[in-house]
Design a protein around this nucleic acid. Structure first.
Lengths: 237, 237, 237, 237
DNA sequence: TATGAATGAGTATTCATTCAT
DNA sequence: GATGAATGAATACTCATTCAT
């Protein structure tokens, strides 16, 4: 699912996966193309308003072909979810291995989380209904989501403990943060005014300070270096 | 749609609207019952996984009866949306006529907005897909939603102007706030640990200050009186 | 069903039957209004595309009211059929009591038949499907229609016997004549260029001579007096 | 749609198209079978009294299969119409390229038209209601029908000009002729006493001369050769 | 690998009809 | 006489899924 190779034609045009003619290894590429195309279609039309025929058509393939790559529609949605979730989990793993105040580490996570939600998989992660996944996969999704929720609460608690964060109710704060970030999937469209990175940065700032005017010496500016790593290929996608 | 009468049996058990035997005037009550029941069903199972038969069954009525009260399923979803939206619009109207700093007024709105989203109509307002409403109603919903977005931005700007609010990007701040609040529809279940009012209050606080530790004298405590009006019947619904 | 009274407001505006307030006798008038309105609706939209609600709406009445006047929708179509058929049967009765050559008498019948088909009941007589009437009424209609068919064949045969008519196959000739006349229900709209009487006269002429050029002395002109009785109120309706 | 091959089993038993096992190319045959079966069902029970399940059952297939071949029920009716219309249009094309008096050419057309109406598509061409086709297809049908009407009027006018035809009003004559022929769809059942060709011939004769006794030398007999081409496979169908 | 063809199951919607008032 | 409210039954249409090729 990773398309870190910047020059990956199937990332922007998944249907291209069926045009090239290099036999071997194609399977993975094609499967990714199926999933990515599904994610886009779900995002545009919603899960139930997207038929497998729609997805097949977008891929320039026929419906049964999709079944060659995924077991069924449910599975397809699940894969979209996983694909989108991975960068968030990576960010959390990174945060756990990074030194720094709870607040700084949380800010990092928030930023990367925001970028992930702004991806084409945002819809599948945020707006897809658990009921559409059936008992089995639905439970898996729920579990993955709550794992993330717990990780964020853990970061919050860490910040509270080290004095870098002050929130009264970490559980609700986690929900608020998640909400503000997940909501990106509702309004953000890539290619318009803002890049994913800009959105992420602005949200970090808002969630960091809230509405209240900053006191003179508060909020020592985020060390510039910390932001350098950003600007991944996905950021502008 | 208003169920200000605290002792309204059909608010908790809409099917009751068909059990009483006072013929006339029932029409409005019954229609409300249909809409409320639909909202609950959509919330539980999602729009597409809820058949009109499900709703009819929940009401103890047959399917065509639903068509006696609303034109079609789309319309039904739309009515749920409107029913849920009304308290938010009322809160905004109230805010516009209330004196006070932009920040105080926005806090009020945030609180009431949160309570509204925690209602049984939350799902319909937040999670329903515009595509499911068709061009006509979809556009109406979009327009109503953007009206609210603009109102919030206006409050933010007011606060920025009067110095009570400090956000760099009011547009993104509005999205963040809306997201944090709308997300309630994803996780809140009435009747569990928290009341809607508690959730609302906690979110107000978080959005007010963000993660940053409060500086000594900052955030003069919200005058206690301001919170008095709260605790409406809906708050615990 | 007869609206020979020229000044009958309910003939052109059946809904008027519910506006007047003369209690007694109204029943018949209202029933006629129901039937006439149904006939018009069936003509415009077809039987299956016309709901009883449509008819009720056209009458400014509610659906159950219709059931006060007719047993059911089938019955309603049947009544329309009967209403339209009556003038044709009258014409046939008249022909049987009229002296003259078979050809002259048939011409009379053709004329009146044409006018009847051009009425608002034309559709119900010609285009309604027997299956829509159910076994019982369907059989009645079939029987009435075949009665008319037989009467026409009898007239033809009379003409053949008295030498005024020359057709090889009276059965097929009867079908051809009926077809030419019934077809009026497909194309004729009252109030446009032609009156029913003009159409009738033209068809009489065509069926009388066919395509073949008339021989010098053939077709002694129809005595002018014979045409006088024409021009009934219905003719222009 | 052409079943020129006399030994085409699917012409009489469309369901046979699903029994053979020659995969490829069947598509067209099967589609024809669907249309032909629909035409028969509509003829027997009427459009609205025929469910797609009925048609599917007659084909020994399930309902969705029908949707594999046609877009919807409307479309199905339209295809029946087209299938039936084709021979008529062919006849008109032939007439335009044939020398001879207007009257002779019209007689040819009348004959072929009659045979076409006597086919299993007769009902769809003549009795189907335009409203059942929706705006789009309804307009197409209307246009095709009026094209035929105009062609007949043109033939009439040609005959009038060359003196072979004498009708006062070509427009009404065209309606009368069309009516006499279309009416076949109401009364003719294949396989009973008369063949389609016999009916056609009789109607040609009647329309040619009308009721009036033939004058001694009028109506030079139709050259026998002209009738030779007749007797196509469809004639008895 | 991919597809043409088929189907089972489901669902929104319509409407004639009934009946208590 | 008339109506508001309700319902049973029917039906077009969709779509995920399968399978032989």
């Amino acid at each position: 699912m990773a398309d870190s190779t910047p020059a990956n034609p199937t990332a922007t045009d998944p249907a291209a996966a069926w045009r090239g003619r290099r036999r071997r290894q194609d399977h993975g590429t094609k499967r990714d193309a199926v999933i990515r195309t599904a994610a886009r279609a779900f995002d545009e039309r919603g899960y139930h308003n997207t038929s497998l025929d729609d997805i097949a058509a977008a891929l320039g393939v026929t419906k049964p072909t999709i079944y060659y790559y995924v077991a069924n529609k449910e599975q397809l949605l699940f894969e979209c979810f996983l694909a989108g979730l991975e960068p968030i989990r990576a960010a959390l793993r990174r945060a756990e291995q990074t030194p720094g105040s709870g607040r700084d580490r949380l800010r990092e996570v928030i930023h990367d989380y925001a970028v992930a939600i702004a991806s084409e998989y945002g819809w599948c992660m945020v707006r897809a209904e658990h009921q559409d996944l059936g008992a089995e996969l639905g439970a898996q999704v729920r579990s993955l989501k709550s794992e993330i929720d717990r990780a964020i609460r853990r970061l919050l608690q860490g910040g509270i403990n080290d004095g870098s964060i002050a929130v009264t109710d970490p559980k609700l704060a986690a929900f608020a943060i998640a909400g503000a970030l997940n909501w990106i999937a509702h309004w953000y469209r890539a290619g318009r005014t803002l890049t994913a990175d800009e959105v992420a940065t602005a949200l970090v700032q808002f969630l960091d300070h809230g509405l209240a005017p900053r006191e003179p010496r508060a909020g020592k500016p985020l060390p510039a270096t910390a932001r350098v790593r950003r600007t991944r290929s996905a950021a502008r996608a």
